[in-house]
């Protein structure tokens, strides 16, 4: 597998108040690959994900040490603006969270604010392109003015993905994007992720090991805030090096 490092995490530690939630993480995440983060609840995989677009900055008690180097620049450097990090590193959440606005406004909101497009046909084109990109254009093209909150859960999640790619990020973080969805919607989102990785680097947290096996190129197994094992997905699932990983994969704990 040809691998270009997109995100280089070096010696990352994170505390919530007194409690250390991440311990000495060192990991390279690769361009145009899907990396799945797996592990039992509370293992730090979602916390780690939120370090990659500085969403942990929003938690007052969080203290972060170490480097997250994206395109050669540590995003925790003083001269880096967390807002511009989030422009480049998009995020999709566990629960679909479309804004209580129309479908069109949901997509157009951020690009307009960022000045990526101007109001009018330029913006219309971007909305269409993003909805196409999220594979939902055909379903909503006649109801762009309708509230996004009226859609089904799976559709809402794809609106959220469309909203994210409309900002033209390099990296998309997904925090258990299908755990709130039914199997058919899940399948659609998974297919979409495989499509998206051609253009973006994707890091996804998942509880569902079959999902990781189905879609991920790389898999990282977390336990108690530590990265236990990180390798190509096949290796992790077929031939894990660590006993803990094997126990988890085979369902002995978790």
């Amino acid at each position: 597998m040809k691998k270009n490092t997109k995100i280089n995490v070096k010696d990352l530690n994170l505390w919530y108040g007194e409690k250390q939630a991440l311990h000495n993480l060192d990991v390279k995440l690769y361009e145009n690959k899907i990396t799945a983060l797996i592990g039992p609840s509370g293992c730090g995989k979602s916390t780690f994900l939120r370090c990659l677009n500085r969403m942990n900055d929003l938690v007052d008690s969080a203290k972060i040490e170490g480097n997250v180097i994206i395109d050669g620049k540590n995003i925790y450097d003083k001269d880096v603006d967390e807002v511009s990090v989030r422009k480049r590193v998009g995020m999709v959440f566990q629960q679909p969270n479309p804004f209580p606005k129309s479908i069109y406004e949901n997509i157009a909101y951020a690009p307009l604010k960022h000045g990526i497009v101007k109001k009018g046909s330029e913006c219309d084109d971007l909305v269409e392109e993003s909805l196409h990109g999220a594979g939902i254009w055909d379903e909503v093209k006649d109801s762009l003015k309708e509230p996004a909150t009226g859609l089904s859960g799976g559709q809402q999640q794809r609106i959220c993905i469309a909203r994210t790619i409309a900002v033209k990020p390099d990296i998309i973080l997904m925090d258990e994007p299908t755990s709130a969805l039914d199997p058919i919607s899940t399948e659609k989102i998974e297919a979409l992720m495989l499509e998206l990785k051609k253009k973006y680097t994707i890091v996804t947290v998942t509880h569902n090991m079959q999902q990781a096996a189905r879609i991920a190129d790389m898999t990282a197994f977390f336990h108690l805030g530590k990265l236990i094992e990180y390798d190509e997905t096949e290796t992790i699932f077929v031939n894990p090096k660590e006993k803990k990983t094997e126990d988890y994969i085979t369902g002995r704990f978790g």
Partner: peptide, 14 residues
């Protein structure tokens, strides 16, 4: 809901 705030901040909104 807090999820709306996070959704917006994750898009790079101030």
């Amino acid at each position: 809901p807090d999820s709306l705030r996070k959704g917006s901040l994750a898009l790079g909104m101030t």
